[in-house]
Amino acid sequence: MATKSTPNLTLSGAQTALAAAEAHSKHIGVPMNVAIVDSSCHLLAFHRMEGAKPTSINIAIDKAFTAAGHRAPTSIYKENVWPGGPAFGIWNSNGGRFMTIAGGVPILDTEGRVLGAIGCSTGTPAQDEEVAKAGKEAVEKVFREEKKQGRSRL
């Protein structure tokens, strides 16, 4: 086979993730920058909540970029990126866009394929990850419901 079709998150899916992330961000009282990318790491949607730090805009986008491209949450790096760790210096890859701070999580379909990712930034790494997971879980819930009904819009 000379070509392969790669599943991607749609704008509708990105909007579902944004809405859920914003709602959770408001719930915890920390305004966020929220970025959604597709499985090819291209930006689908971005939302800067009132009060979110302007310096966190690119961080949110790069967290989503890293989670989609590496097919893993950005929180997995932790001690691995410290001097002497097996991934020390990885943040210099991809033009300096590789993020090793929690807050980027992949969005998966019901078969475990990465469709895109969400990245959040402005709070602590734990808060960023919590808000990103809320967005991811909202989209994945829709996928499960649509699979049960035999249809797919995201």
Rank of each mutant, 00 (worst) to 15 (best):
E129N: 12
S56V: 04
F98R: 01
L154F: 10
E145K: 15
V131P: 04
V142G: 08
G95C: 00
A117C: 09
W91S: 15
P86I: 06
E22H: 11
R153Y: 14
V81W: 03
W91L: 13
V131K: 03
G51Q: 10
K147A: 14
T110G: 14
D38G: 14
L154H: 10
K148N: 13
N94Y: 04
T3M: 08
A45L: 13
A21M: 05
G104H: 01
T74I: 05
G103C: 06
S25I: 02
S5M: 14
I90Q: 00
T100L: 04
G89Y: 04
L43M: 08
N8E: 15
F143G: 10
I59S: 07
I36N: 00
S40F: 06
M99F: 02
A14V: 01
A35E: 03
L11H: 13
T74E: 04
H24R: 10
K141F: 09
R71M: 11
P31S: 09
L108D: 12
K78I: 07
T124F: 03
A134P: 05
K136M: 12
I61G: 00
A72D: 07
A60E: 01
K147H: 06
E137H: 12
E22N: 15
Q149H: 08
G29F: 02
P54H: 10
V142F: 06
E79I: 09
S25E: 01
A14N: 00
R151E: 13
K4C: 13
G150I: 08
P54L: 11
K136D: 07
T10D: 09
T10E: 11
G89H: 03
V142S: 06
H24P: 02
A2Y: 12
H70R: 07
K136W: 03
D38Y: 09
K4F: 14
R113A: 09
V114L: 14
G119V: 06
N80S: 15
G112D: 10
G150V: 06
G85C: 04
G116S: 08
G96D: 01
A138N: 12
S75F: 05
L44D: 07
N8M: 11
A102E: 01
A87V: 00
S56A: 15
V142E: 09
L115D: 13
N8P: 05
I90G: 00
S56C: 14
I101F: 12
I28F: 11
G104P: 02
S40D: 12
S56M: 12
A52I: 01
Q149M: 11
V37K: 00
I36Y: 00
A67M: 01
N33T: 11
P31K: 08
C120D: 03
L115C: 14
A17S: 06
R48Y: 10
I90T: 02
S152F: 12
P125C: 07
A19P: 04
G89D: 02
F88K: 05
E130R: 09
G112W: 09
A19Y: 07
I36K: 03
E137W: 07
E111Q: 11
H24N: 09
R151V: 15
K4N: 12
F65H: 03
A60K: 02
A67I: 02
S40E: 11
G85H: 03
F65G: 02
T110P: 08
K136E: 10
H42N: 14
M32A: 03
P7E: 07
F46A: 00
V139L: 15
P54R: 06
T100C: 04
L115Q: 12
E130T: 13
A138G: 13
S39L: 05
